[in-house]
Structures are given as structure tokens and as C-alpha cells.
Write a protein that binds this DNA or RNA. Sequence first.
RNA 1: GGUCCCGUGGUGUAGCCUGGCCAAACACGCGGCCCUGUCAAGGCCGAGAGCGCCGGUUCGAAUCCGGUCGGGACCGCCA
Length: 586
Amino acid sequence: MSGYSAPHCGSLRASDEGRDVELYGWVARRRDMGGVIFIDLRDRWGKVQVVFNPAVAPAAHEAASDLRSEFVVRVAGSVRRRPSGSENPRLETGDIEVAASDLEVLSPSEPTPFPLEDSEEPDEKTRLEYRYLDLRRPRMTRMLELRNKVNRIIRDYMEEREFIEVETPILTRSSPSGARDFLVPSRLHPAEFYALPQAPQMLKQLLMVSGVQRYYQIARCFRDENLRADRQPEFTQLDVEMSFCNEEDVFALIEGLFAKLWQETAGVTLAAPFPRLDIKESFLRYGSDKPDLRYELEIADLGDALGNTKADIFRKVLAADGVVRALSVPHGRDMARRELDELVTVAKGAGGQGLAWLPGGPLDKFLSEQEIESIKRLTMAGPDDLVLIAADRRRKAETVMGLIRQEIARRRKLIREGEWKFLWINPTYLFDEDDQGKLTYAHHPFTRPFAEDMSFVEERPYDVRAHAYDIVCNGYELGGGSLRIYDPGMQERVFQLLGMPLDVIRARFGTLLQAFTYGVPPHGGIAPGIDRIVMMLGGTDNIRDVIAFPKTQSMSDLMLGAPSEVDQSQLDELNIKVVPPKKDRS
RNA sequence: GGUCCCGUGGUGUAGCCUGGCCAAACACGCGGCCCUGUCAAGGCCGAGAGCGCCGGUUCGAAUCCGGUCGGGACCGCCA
């Protein structure tokens, strides 16, 4: 058997006419005419029709009548042009067919638990349980191929620019990131644990100290946080770090890479350089740090218009340092009460208080004519438009309006499909507020601040800009990075501002800080998410579609049955004693 | 931690709101028979679920209620 060198079912063309071939593949479909039998034989490259004629090859025909879907077979025969008029334009191989002389069933198949076709998708639960079958579907095979192609283009591109791929450990130490770690117990060090990398952050910076200068890695990352449609507990990043660079170098590198990826996989020419948007402005205008710019629907701040309002709901929120934000829905004037209610549900689902609207709501009589005019002006609402208003603490109001903006665009079909709206979120700011209203780092503590902004860091810390950036496309964050601090004085200052005790700093960042005393090049980097890139290029909004063996929202692998309990002996060896989960305890 | 949606033959759906007409319908698939040019092949015949699970309400539950398990979307979370 030499199926390896055999021609592919899906690759045969009219030019192969007359060839004697041996084909290997799966039976996609059998059509038994009583006399002649047709099968569509499928392999990774596509399908081809095979004909079994009882008058020509009686034994093969006899065997073919026992064929069923998904049988694995070897077929010998000759490629011939189909009889005139029976070509199938829906098949790439539709001009020809293979006249079978011999058939061998290599492996039979039970009826599959769901049809292996693209037309109808079974429940995702079933697909995941039988993922090995799901991946046989052409759509999923295409996703695997696309992902491979993306990886290959990335490697070519990075190599051309003299980056080298360096592998970093999977068994590592808890890193200075904000996410929950996955831990791995150490047999040789009882009561101690490795952590899986959330990203190779510290290691790539250490590689800069090592003089690698241009590093990249297609790196698996692990974060034990809750899942979303675009988030898996393990995912893959193109991890990049380079020495002696500024932001423009990073932007140009990544814009070039995305341009190449889009060109070579989608045939799309991207308009570079990508526009840049200050993160505060992004939250204000779009209610998000990853805005979808394929539609307008800009959010307006009504603070100025309502400065002296008598409307209680707004007055109270503004007095409590909150904000009032609004969005004009084009031709929304006639929006059904039902749709309005659904939008309110969306707002509440995001933790908001709800929504107010103008006109037609109870608000009409609480606002002065002048206020209503100002609101119309700020939201640029025309006579047919409806203004939706959320009042809340800033962060909450932004989240709510951001979601409402998305929902309106989706419902009203305002999204210009086919467009690729790339942008950089830049600059961002060094600090953020944590739950208790305390200063915390917005990115990670090595993010380099704008040197000139440090002069007012004491008075207005939240206005200190950072050399950090996210790349965003069509509402997805495709990656983020920063220039790093390499000056020990600056680093100390930042730690001090964060109120981080020296022992914490030593424990978590000691290695890096020490390394920086031996000659560290100024450096910076970025880490685009490969899963999301493939999602975009593959036209799916589900990250599971671009991962061969993904996990469910509750982090289970339905095919393998992971996670699972383990033998007591394994636990003993690791010095681990399992405590029953809280629910089970009395 | 929270909000919302979903769970009916192998698959996809209908039925559920408004309980009885449902020992559950349709299509695909599956099994058998017929058929020598089909390609979503066609024709005829047939098998296959008691409605995720547990409990409750009711004369009566796929349908109403509570819980639970599983899947999904989102908020929090994810520098």
C-alpha cells in the first residue's frame, strides 16, 4: 500500500484523464442505481466520483454494494472524462470520474452519530464528544488547514526579519500576571507547585538580556479564568519581543504581518498603517477597549447637557461622580416597545440599572426643552431617531452602552460585513483603579510610562500615559504589548507608586530585576492571539471552531472526559490530599 | 459569583406560551426490496424517542412549578 504517494481524491482534474490511479479515502455517499453504483470518495483534499460498472468490473461492483458511509477504502481505476452532460459543476473534480477496476474495504464504519457534512451542524455537545468525527467535516478540515497556514506565514515572516523562535518552559513559576494560574504539583518538592505559563512574559524579557534581540515563539498560554466565545483556558499567542525598538517598530512589524496574513489567506489588502485611538476615547465613544468600527453609532457624554437637570435619576448619578451616556439609534423613533424592553434586559444583564429613552419615554416631561435640545445635538439625533440613555458609574455606563451599541448594530444590520477595521488602542495609561479604588497597574508593572508624564504622577496618576498598545479588529482584541521599563530608577518608582512591598517585588520579579543589572537593552514586544486571528480569517465567532480539541465553557473536554479523578497512588506520590468541595461538606 | 437561553428517535426540527386531540409529527439518516448515469439519486416497505434527570401540582404533564445535571451567550473575571 502506498497511499502516501497516491493522488488525492479531491485533486484530480480533467488533465488527469487516462491515468490509472489508486485512491484512498472515505465513502462520503453511495448511489446505487441497481446496476451501476456511484460513490463519492472523500479525502482531505475533496471528493471525487467513483463508478462501479457490473459489466466492466463485476467483483468490484459486487463489493461496492456493501459500502456504507464513512467506510475507508482503496479503489483502483482509471480517470476518465464524464459522459457529456453529466459533469457536476458543484464538484471541483466534477469534469471527471474514476472508473473502478478494484475495490478493497480497509475499514468499515458504523453509522456516524451525526452527518459529516457542512450543511447542518449538530449540537455542539455532540460535536465535541465525537470531535474526531467533527474534524472530518470539510468546514473543520478547512479550519485546521487555515490555522496551519497562518502559523506558516507567521514563521516565514518572522524568520525573514531575523527573529528566532525560542521555546520556553511549560513547567514554570507563577508569573507577574493578573490571571489565576494552573498549578502542577511537584513530586520531588512536596507542597510545591509549578505554574503553567499565562504567557512567557518574564522569560522573553530575560531573552532580551541574553542578547537574543529578536525573539518570537508560537507559544501556548494557560489562564484559569472563565471562558467566553473567544476565550479558552489554553490558547496560542505569537509571542514577540525585540531589543532597541520603539512603538513604531512594533506597529510596523505587526501591521506588515497582518497585511501579509490577510493578503495570503483572504486575498484582502489591508490599509496600513492602522489608525490609533486613545483608550479613554475608545471607552467614551464606543464603550469598549476593543471597538468594532464597522459601524458608527458613537456614544455621547451628556454630562454637560444635564449639569443642572431636575431629573432625579440623572442628578443623583452625576452628583455621585457617575456619568450619563447616550446613543442615537438611526430611525429608531418607531422602535417597538418589545424591542426596547429587550434592550433594557441587555442593559440589566450587564449589571446596569436599565435604559432611558427619548422621545416617547417618561423622561420627556422631566427634562427641559433646552436639555432635550442639547441631548439631540450631542448625540446628533435627527427627527426619526431614538436616543438611548444610561446613567451609572463611569465603568458600568460604558460597559452598558458598549453592549447596547453592539446589540443595536446587530439587530438593525448596521455592521458592514466584509470590512476589516483594524486599529491600535494607543496610548493607554499606566495605572488603573482596582475594586477598592486603589492604584493598580493597567498592564503589567514593567510597562514603560511616558517619561514626560512622570512629572505629574503624584497629582494625576491616572493621566500618566504608557507605551502600551492593543491591536483590535472588528470588535476583537487581537493582541497587546508594550515597551518595557529597563531603567532601575524608573522601575523602583513605579513599584513604589503601586505600593508594592519590597519582599513581594523580590519574590515575584527578583530574577528580572537582577538580570536588568547586567546590561539590559531597551526592549518591547507584543503578543497577538493566534486563535482569534484564525477565527477572523475563518469567518467564525467561536474560538472552539479553530482549536482541534477545545474545552467547554465549564472547562471540560467532552471527548476525553477531562478533568478526571486520578488513582489514590498518584495522589500519594504527590503528597496531595483531596478535600471534598464545599458543596459536599456538611 | 451572577443574569439569560437551550436539552423531544442516530441527526436536525415541530409540538411547550394556551395541560387531555401526543403510547409524540416532519425531514435526513438507518434496515429491506426494486432500479445501469446518478450526484441532496429515485420508488415502495419497515424499525427507531415517551420528551436530560429527580421531585411536585393536577383526574391527567413533553407541555405548569421547584431542584439538579449538561451545553451555550453575556456581566464580573481575563495585566
